[in-house]
Measured scan of single mutants.
Amino acid sequence: PQEEYKKRAKKALKKGDEDTAREALKRAGLSPDQAEEFIRRFL
Score class of each variant (00 low, 15 high):
residue 12 A to S: 05
residue 34 Q to K: 06
residue 30 L to N: 01
residue 43 L to G: 08
residue 35 A to L: 09
residue 5 Y to S: 05
residue 6 K to Q: 09
residue 40 R to C: 09
residue 42 F to E: 07
residue 34 Q to W: 04
residue 42 F to V: 09
residue 43 L to P: 04
residue 30 L to F: 12
residue 12 A to D: 02
residue 30 L to K: 01
residue 31 S to C: 08
residue 2 Q to D: 11
residue 34 Q to P: 01
residue 24 A to T: 08
residue 42 F to D: 02
residue 26 K to E: 09
residue 7 K to P: 02
residue 39 I to R: 01
residue 24 A to D: 09
residue 13 L to V: 03
residue 38 F to N: 00
residue 21 A to I: 02
residue 12 A to E: 03
residue 12 A to W: 04
residue 41 R to H: 10
residue 23 E to R: 09
residue 41 R to W: 11
residue 43 L to F: 12
residue 11 K to Q: 15
residue 14 K to C: 14
residue 3 E to I: 08
residue 12 A to F: 06
residue 38 F to T: 02
residue 42 F to W: 12
residue 33 D to P: 07
residue 7 K to D: 13
residue 38 F to Q: 01
residue 41 R to L: 09
residue 10 K to F: 11
residue 36 E to F: 05
residue 7 K to N: 12
residue 1 P to R: 14
residue 43 L to S: 08
residue 15 K to G: 11
residue 10 K to E: 15
residue 41 R to T: 09
residue 41 R to S: 10
residue 27 R to E: 12
residue 39 I to H: 01
residue 14 K to R: 14
residue 6 K to N: 04
residue 43 L to H: 10
residue 9 A to W: 03
residue 8 R to T: 11
residue 17 D to K: 05
residue 31 S to L: 07
residue 16 G to W: 04
residue 37 E to W: 06
residue 32 P to M: 10
residue 16 G to I: 02
residue 33 D to Q: 13
residue 26 K to D: 06
residue 8 R to G: 04
residue 25 L to V: 01
residue 38 F to M: 04
residue 32 P to S: 11
residue 27 R to Y: 09
residue 36 E to V: 04
residue 42 F to Y: 12
residue 23 E to H: 07
residue 39 I to P: 00
residue 33 D to S: 12
residue 21 A to V: 03
residue 11 K to I: 15
residue 32 P to Y: 10
residue 15 K to I: 13
residue 19 D to A: 14
residue 28 A to W: 04
residue 26 K to Q: 10
residue 33 D to E: 14
residue 16 G to M: 04
residue 2 Q to S: 12
residue 35 A to V: 14
residue 5 Y to L: 12
residue 20 T to V: 08
residue 21 A to S: 02
residue 22 R to A: 04
residue 5 Y to D: 06
residue 21 A to R: 00
residue 7 K to E: 15
residue 19 D to Y: 11
residue 20 T to E: 13
residue 43 L to K: 12
residue 4 E to C: 12
residue 36 E to H: 05
residue 39 I to Q: 00
residue 4 E to I: 09
residue 1 P to I: 14
residue 42 F to M: 06
residue 25 L to S: 00
residue 21 A to F: 02
residue 29 G to M: 03
residue 28 A to F: 04
residue 40 R to P: 00
residue 22 R to L: 06
residue 43 L to D: 05
residue 27 R to M: 15
residue 8 R to H: 10
residue 4 E to D: 12
residue 10 K to V: 15
residue 33 D to I: 10
residue 38 F to L: 04
residue 28 A to G: 07
residue 17 D to V: 02
residue 35 A to I: 15
residue 1 P to L: 15
residue 13 L to W: 03
residue 15 K to E: 15
residue 9 A to N: 01
residue 6 K to V: 15
residue 25 L to C: 01
residue 7 K to Y: 07
residue 28 A to H: 03
residue 12 A to Q: 03
residue 43 L to T: 09
residue 11 K to C: 14
residue 13 L to H: 01
residue 38 F to H: 01
residue 6 K to M: 15
residue 21 A to G: 03
residue 27 R to L: 15
residue 24 A to Q: 13
residue 15 K to L: 14
residue 5 Y to K: 03
residue 30 L to I: 04
residue 8 R to L: 15
residue 2 Q to T: 12
residue 11 K to R: 14
residue 6 K to G: 04
residue 31 S to P: 06
residue 11 K to H: 12
residue 17 D to E: 06
residue 28 A to R: 01
residue 18 E to V: 15
residue 8 R to C: 13
residue 42 F to Q: 05
residue 37 E to L: 07
residue 2 Q to L: 12
residue 24 A to L: 15
residue 36 E to L: 06
residue 4 E to V: 08
residue 7 K to R: 13
residue 39 I to C: 02
residue 6 K to A: 07
residue 23 E to D: 11
residue 13 L to Y: 02
residue 36 E to I: 05
residue 1 P to F: 14
residue 34 Q to G: 05
residue 23 E to K: 10
residue 8 R to M: 15
residue 33 D to R: 10
residue 12 A to K: 02
residue 27 R to A: 14
residue 35 A to P: 00
residue 43 L to R: 13
residue 19 D to E: 13
residue 12 A to N: 03
residue 26 K to R: 14
residue 20 T to K: 09
residue 9 A to V: 04
residue 8 R to W: 11
residue 15 K to S: 13
residue 17 D to A: 05
residue 5 Y to P: 03
residue 5 Y to N: 06
residue 33 D to A: 13
residue 32 P to G: 08
residue 31 S to G: 06
residue 27 R to S: 11
residue 29 G to L: 04
residue 2 Q to W: 13
residue 35 A to M: 12
residue 11 K to L: 13
residue 4 E to Y: 14
residue 20 T to G: 14
residue 21 A to C: 05
residue 5 Y to R: 03
residue 24 A to R: 03
residue 34 Q to N: 05
residue 25 L to R: 00
residue 1 P to N: 14
residue 43 L to M: 11
residue 41 R to N: 11
residue 39 I to G: 00
residue 22 R to V: 04
residue 35 A to T: 12
residue 16 G to N: 05
residue 28 A to K: 01
residue 23 E to T: 07
residue 14 K to E: 15
residue 22 R to D: 00
residue 34 Q to D: 11
residue 33 D to H: 09
residue 35 A to H: 02
residue 24 A to N: 13
residue 16 G to D: 04
residue 34 Q to Y: 05
residue 1 P to A: 14
residue 41 R to G: 07
residue 15 K to P: 01
residue 39 I to D: 00
residue 30 L to D: 00
residue 27 R to H: 12
residue 6 K to Y: 15
residue 22 R to I: 05
residue 11 K to P: 01
residue 30 L to T: 01
residue 4 E to G: 07
residue 25 L to T: 00
residue 14 K to A: 15
residue 24 A to M: 15
residue 18 E to W: 15
residue 17 D to G: 03
residue 25 L to N: 00
residue 35 A to C: 10
residue 14 K to F: 11
residue 18 E to I: 15
residue 43 L to E: 06
residue 33 D to W: 09
residue 3 E to N: 10
residue 13 L to P: 01
residue 38 F to C: 07
residue 25 L to D: 00
residue 19 D to Q: 13
residue 27 R to D: 09
residue 15 K to H: 13
residue 33 D to Y: 08
residue 22 R to K: 06
residue 39 I to Y: 02
residue 7 K to W: 08
residue 17 D to F: 05
residue 4 E to S: 08
residue 3 E to Q: 08
residue 30 L to C: 08
residue 14 K to G: 09
residue 1 P to C: 14
residue 38 F to V: 04
residue 25 L to F: 02
residue 11 K to A: 15
residue 42 F to G: 03
residue 20 T to P: 02
residue 29 G to F: 03
residue 41 R to D: 09
residue 24 A to S: 08
residue 20 T to H: 06
residue 9 A to M: 02
residue 40 R to K: 10
residue 3 E to K: 09
residue 5 Y to Q: 08
residue 12 A to H: 05
residue 26 K to P: 01
residue 6 K to R: 10
residue 25 L to M: 03
residue 1 P to D: 14
residue 8 R to Y: 11
residue 41 R to P: 01
residue 14 K to Q: 14
residue 10 K to Y: 14
residue 42 F to L: 06
residue 38 F to Y: 08
residue 32 P to V: 11
residue 14 K to I: 14
residue 13 L to I: 05
residue 29 G to C: 03
residue 7 K to C: 12
residue 27 R to F: 10
residue 26 K to N: 08
residue 13 L to K: 01
residue 10 K to S: 08
residue 20 T to L: 10
residue 19 D to M: 12
residue 21 A to E: 00
residue 4 E to R: 10
residue 36 E to Q: 07
residue 24 A to V: 13
residue 43 L to A: 09
residue 15 K to F: 10
residue 36 E to C: 06
residue 16 G to R: 05
residue 8 R to F: 12
residue 39 I to A: 01
residue 30 L to E: 01
residue 19 D to L: 12
residue 19 D to I: 13
residue 31 S to Y: 04
residue 10 K to I: 15
residue 28 A to N: 02
residue 33 D to K: 11
residue 32 P to L: 11
residue 40 R to N: 07
residue 30 L to R: 00
residue 41 R to V: 08
residue 40 R to T: 07
residue 26 K to H: 12
residue 2 Q to Y: 12
residue 40 R to L: 08
residue 40 R to Y: 09
residue 8 R to D: 10
residue 7 K to G: 06
residue 14 K to T: 11
residue 22 R to P: 00
residue 6 K to P: 03
residue 13 L to M: 04
residue 9 A to Q: 01
residue 11 K to D: 15
residue 36 E to A: 08
residue 19 D to T: 13
residue 19 D to G: 10
residue 32 P to Q: 11
residue 28 A to T: 04
residue 34 Q to A: 11
residue 43 L to W: 12
residue 6 K to E: 11
residue 4 E to K: 10
residue 42 F to K: 02
residue 39 I to M: 06
residue 37 E to K: 06
residue 20 T to I: 07
residue 28 A to M: 06
residue 2 Q to H: 11
residue 34 Q to L: 06
residue 20 T to D: 07
residue 16 G to T: 02
residue 36 E to P: 00
residue 36 E to Y: 05
residue 13 L to R: 02
residue 9 A to R: 02
residue 9 A to P: 01
residue 17 D to T: 02
residue 41 R to M: 11
residue 1 P to E: 14
residue 1 P to V: 14
residue 19 D to S: 12
residue 15 K to A: 14
residue 10 K to N: 07
residue 7 K to S: 10
residue 4 E to M: 11
residue 10 K to C: 14
residue 14 K to D: 10
residue 12 A to V: 03
residue 12 A to P: 01
residue 3 E to V: 07
residue 30 L to P: 00
residue 1 P to S: 14
residue 22 R to Q: 03
residue 28 A to Y: 05
residue 13 L to A: 03
residue 4 E to F: 13
residue 29 G to W: 02
residue 30 L to Y: 11
residue 33 D to M: 11
residue 16 G to Y: 04
residue 32 P to F: 10
residue 25 L to A: 01
residue 11 K to S: 13
residue 41 R to F: 08
residue 24 A to I: 15
residue 39 I to T: 01
residue 29 G to Q: 03
residue 1 P to G: 12
residue 19 D to R: 13
residue 8 R to E: 14
residue 16 G to P: 02
residue 33 D to L: 11
residue 17 D to I: 03
residue 18 E to L: 15
residue 43 L to Q: 11
residue 9 A to L: 03
residue 3 E to W: 11
residue 4 E to Q: 09
residue 14 K to W: 11
residue 36 E to S: 07
residue 31 S to T: 14
residue 14 K to M: 15
residue 12 A to L: 07
residue 24 A to K: 04
residue 36 E to R: 05
residue 23 E to Q: 10
residue 12 A to Y: 07
residue 23 E to N: 07
residue 30 L to W: 07
residue 5 Y to C: 10
residue 16 G to Q: 05
residue 4 E to T: 07
residue 18 E to Y: 15
residue 7 K to V: 08
